[in-house]
């Protein structure tokens, strides 16, 4: 049995028939080939799978593809505009906010949501805002720097 869904992914319309139990993260990664969202825990605890759904940061391992029917989804692949990196992408590169990179797409999209809510967060607000995303490599020190860099560039 499948359900048909229509949504927008990175600004492009998508139509598909999916199993009702298919997770959004698998739909994005395997059906659409958008492998930027990673799976680190499949239990909504690590944040590696974070994407934006109608502007909200959502852990795509805990949402069904069917629930995204009618939604607008942004993945890390949709963040750079016309070949220009998003300031958050620049910030992570500039400030060494990543090592293995596995948490990075989710981290950047959560930070994107944070900056949309609070364009000039304090260090503490950055740490509070990103606590749903685990990074095992960086110790977070440079992630805070990366988000601050982006906030400055965006203001």
């Amino acid at each position: 049995m499948t359900v048909s869904i229509q949504l927008e992914v990175n600004g492009k319309p998508v139509q598909a028939a999916v199993e009702p139990r298919r997770l959004l993260v698998h739909f994005l990664r395997e059906d659409l080939g958008l492998t930027g969202a990673n799976i680190g825990c499949e239990t909504s605890l690590c944040g590696a799978c974070t994407v934006l759904v109608d502007g909200d940061a959502v852990k795509s391992c805990t949402m069904l593809a069917a629930q995204a029917d009618g939604a607008s989804v942004t993945t890390i692949e949709g963040l750079a505009q016309n070949g220009d990196l998003h300031p958050l992408q620049e910030g992570f590169w500039e400030k060494h906010g990543l090592q293995c990179g596995y948490c990075t797409p989710g981290m950047i999209l959560s930070a994107n949501y944070l900056l949309a809510q609070n364009p000039s967060p304090s260090d503490e607000e950055i740490r509070e805002g990103l606590k749903g995303n685990i990074c095992r490599c960086t110790g977070y020190h440079n992630i805070v720097e990366a988000v601050k860099y982006a906030a400055e560039r965006m203001s």
Partner: peptide, 21 residues
């Protein structure tokens, strides 16, 4: 020097094992 590894990783183009088909 900024890392040459990063452009692929910050744009979602880096390919980890589970990304491969």
């Amino acid at each position: 020097i900024k890392r040459r590894e990063d452009p692929a990783l910050i744009t979602g183009r880096g390919k980890y094992t589970d990304d491969l088909q």
